[in-house]
Computed example of a mutant assay.
Amino acid sequence: MTEEGVVREELLTIGAFAARARLSAKALRLYDRLGLLAPAYVDEVSGYRYYRAEQVERARLVALLRQLDMPLGRVAEVLGAEGPEAAERLAGYWADVEARVAGQRTLAEYLRGRLSGRSSEMYEKFVVGIVDVPARVVITESRHTLADELPAWIGASLGRLEEAARECGGVAGAPFVVYHSEVSTESDGPTESCVPVADEAAAREWAARVGRAWESAVRVEPAVRLAYTRITKAQVAHPQILAAFEAVEQWVAAEGLEVAGPCREVYFADWEAAGAQDPVCDVAFPVRSASRP
């Protein structure tokens, strides 16, 4: 018998291996194509795949990870690590899953309230007021971003802008974020982070130097009247913040006013130092008197 024949006698056909690993032949071909589980030998003439018995453990591991709904890319990351590192990557993935489920659970409760006609009860906890904000110079950073990317981007962009404000006469007001279009899991904005600064000339020099790198700009924000409600750090999370925006919209309509621009979040507190129940943010809409027909 040839050496190749001996090798093939020691290997399992894809059918036998699939049965032992409790995977389909179709799944094995996919895992091979993605580099997750390559055959030990492929016949050059027939194209038949053969596997070693010791590969069963890896195949079963892939199957178990997939039962966690782990994307194939993340499976590859876990398999590419060893020992504690592999376990840490699995733990990181599962933490992401639990965070997503917790958010979905909260969203489901919110939607139950809306569908059952209890929306007014959700809005009653938000106290809405009016504030007039004078014109000011702002430095900005813009980006198209989906909802799951938004918190990290807001923190990073406002951090960069507050650092840049040192070159522009210093921060001259509470940072804020403007939503020029819907931001959700399917719609990506755009969103604009803004920091008021004291020196317009210096701000324009800064924007000319770094504008392309961060999609940054400087502009004069006109005086605006805002209808707003103040929320806690816990309420900033989605979907609680949706109820806050809707409460403001409902109040605006009840007061005979009109929304006059895109909604915004105004951050007036130290986010890192604030506790879950500490007020940190105003959600607001620019408003004006309703136009008469």
Rank of each mutant, 00 (worst) to 15 (best):
E192W: 01
R219V: 10
S157A: 15
V171G: 01
G159F: 10
A174L: 01
V195L: 05
S187R: 15
A223K: 08
G173F: 03
A198C: 03
D188R: 13
A217P: 05
R212I: 00
V183D: 00
P196W: 01
V178W: 00
R230Q: 14
T185A: 13
G159P: 04
R166L: 13
L226S: 06
Y228K: 06
E192D: 08
D188T: 04
R204Y: 14
A208S: 14
A227H: 02
G189H: 00
A164E: 07
S193M: 12
G170T: 08
G211C: 06
S193F: 01
R209M: 05
P222S: 12
E182T: 11
R209D: 11
T229Y: 08
D188S: 14
G169E: 02
L158W: 03
R209T: 11
A201C: 03
D188C: 05
A208H: 07
C168E: 05
A165K: 05
G211I: 07
R204C: 10
A223F: 06
S157L: 03
E186S: 07
T191C: 15
S193L: 06
A208C: 08
R166T: 12
G159L: 11
E162K: 15
L158R: 09
T185Y: 05
E163G: 04
F176H: 13
S181N: 14
T232N: 11
V197P: 08
P222R: 12
W214T: 15
V197T: 08
Y179G: 08
V224T: 15
G169N: 09
E205Q: 14
A203L: 09
V224W: 02
C168H: 04
A198P: 04
T185D: 11
A208T: 03
V171C: 08
